[in-house]
C-alpha cells in the first residue's frame, strides 16, 4: 500500500498493522464504548427529569397558593370576595373589587399609552431606520429592558408625580372640569392612576419594542421585495404585507407587555397612591393588587385570615396572568398553523 502521487514528505498511511503511526484506537473494545453509551443515557435521563420537574412548577404554584387561600375561601365565596368593595381585615372583610379595578385602570391606561408608540417605534426600527442607527438603538433597548423596576418607580416619584401634581392636574381641573374620568375629583397629590400608568408604560416599552421589532424583522425580505416591486410604497408594504404577516407576533408582544404591567409591583407601589377605593378619575389614587400584597406582608401574620386573603390575591393575579399568557400562546400557535398550511 503506497501512495503513488504523494508528496515526498508524506508517510504512507498504515491502516491495520501500523506499528509506527497507527494510533491504538480500540473502538470495538466493549467496555469503553458501553460506558460512553451509559453516560449518554444517564445524561438524557437527568435532562428530561429536570425539565419535567420545572414544567410541573406551574402546577405547584397554583396548588400551593390555592392551599393557602382555602381558609378564607371556606368562609366567603370567591364571587363574594371578588365583587366585595369593603377591605377591612380586622373585621374579616376582604373585598378585592377596588384592587382589581385599580389594577385594571393602571394597566389598561399604561397599555393604551405604550402600545401605539411601541409598535410605531418597532416598525421604524425594523423597516425604516438606517442599519447604523438600529445597531445603536437595538442593544440600547435591550439594556433598558433590564433596568430594575424600583428605578422606574423612583423616576416616577422624582419626575412623573410632581409633573402630574403641578402641571397636569391643575390644567385638567381648569379645562376638563365636569368631564368624567378626566376631571380631578379633589386636589391631586400626584400619586395617582395616571402617574402609575405613565411609569408602567415607560417600563414595558423596551419589552414590547424588543419583541415586536424581532417579529417584524422576521418577515422574509422576499415577500417585502415582491410588494415593493409591484410599485407599492414603503408604508403600503408595511401596512398590507409586513404588518399582516407579523400581526400574531405583534399581538403576542403586546400581551406580554400587558402581563408584565399587570403583575408589576414595586414601581406601581411607589407611585399609585395606595388608597383602597374605586378611583373616579385618572387623578385619583388607586391600589393595585400587587401593591396590596407587597404592602401588607409585614402584618399579615398577626390578623386571622389576612395571610390567607393575601395569598388569594396572589392566586388571582397568577391566574389572570396565566390566562393572558395562554391566550398569547394560542394566538401564536394558531398563526403558525395558518401560515404552514
Amino acid at each position: 500500500m503506497s501512495s503513488s502521487s504523494a508528496p515526498p514528505d508524506m508517510q504512507p498511511p498504515q491502516m491495520r498493522d501500523g506499528a509506527s503511526a497507527g494510533p491504538p484506537i480500540d473502538a470495538d473494545r466493549p467496555t469503553g464504548g458501553r460506558l460512553r453509551l451509559v453516560m449518554d443515557r444517564l445524561v438524557t435521563g437527568a435532562v428530561s427529569a429536570v425539565s419535567v420537574a420545572v414544567a410541573l412548577l406551574t402546577v405547584s404554584l397554583v396548588v400551593a397558593l390555592l392551599v393557602r387561600s382555602l381558609p378564607v375561601l371556606g368562609l366567603q365565596s370567591l364571587a363574594e370576595m371578588i365583587t366585595g368593595t369593603v377591605w377591612h381585615p380586622l373585621q374579616g372583610k376582604f373585598g378585592f373589587w377596588p384592587f382589581i379595578v385599580g389594577t385594571l385602570w393602571v394597566t389598561v391606561l399604561a397599555m393604551l399609552l405604550a402600545t401605539p408608540a411601541c409598535i410605531l417605534t418597532a416598525i421604524y426600527l425594523a423597516e425604516y431606520a438606517a442599519t447604523g442607527l438600529r445597531a445603536v438603538v437595538r442593544p440600547m433597548i435591550d439594556v433598558l429592558a433590564g433596568i430594575p423596576s424600583v428605578v422606574y418607580g423612583l423616576f416616577g416619584v422624582l419626575v412623573i408625580v410632581p409633573l402630574v401634581r403641578d402641571r397636569l392636574a391643575p390644567a385638567a381641573a381648569e379645562h376638563l372640569s365636569g368631564v368624567p374620568l378626566l376631571a380631578p375629583g379633589k386636589v391631586s397629590t400626584g400619586y395617582c392612576v395616571l402617574a402609575a400608568a405613565v411609569v408602567l408604560a415607560l417600563m414595558v416599552t423596551p419589552v414590547i419594542i424588543s419583541v415586536a421589532e424581532e417579529v417584524l424583522r422576521g418577515v422574509s425580505p422576499g415577500v417585502r421585495e415582491a410588494s415593493l416591486s409591484l410599485g407599492a410604497t414603503r408604508w403600503e408594504t408595511v401596512k398590507h404585507v409586513s404588518f399582516r404577516i407579523a400581526m400574531p407576533g405583534l399581538i403576542a408582544a403586546v400581551v406580554l407587555g400587558f402581563a408584565r404591567a399587570f403583575g408589576e409591583t414595586m414601581a406601581v407601589l411607589m407611585v399609585a397612591g395606595n388608597v383602597a377605593q374605586l378611583p373616579g378619575s385618572l387623578f385619583d389614587p388607586a391600589y393595585p393588587l400587587p401593591a396590596l400584597i407587597a404592602n401588607n406582608y409585614g402584618e399579615m401574620m398577626s390578623i386571622p385570615l389576612y395571610d390567607s386573603a393575601l395569598m388569594l390575591g396572589a392566586l388571582i393575579l397568577l391566574v389572570v396572568v396565566l390566562i393572558f399568557n395562554l391566550l398569547a400562546e394560542l394566538v401564536l400557535i394558531w398563526a403558525r398553523r395558518r401560515s404552514s398550511q
Binding site: Q11, A21, P23, P24, A27
Partner: peptide, 17 residues
C-alpha cells in the same frame, strides 16, 4: 480522544500524520 487515545505524544503524532 473520544475513542480513548489520551497520551500526548500519540496525539501529536496523529495530528502530524
Amino acid at each position: 480522544r473520544l475513542h480513548g487515545v489520551r497520551k500526548r505524544a500519540q496525539l501529536e503524532q496523529i495530528v502530524e500524520r
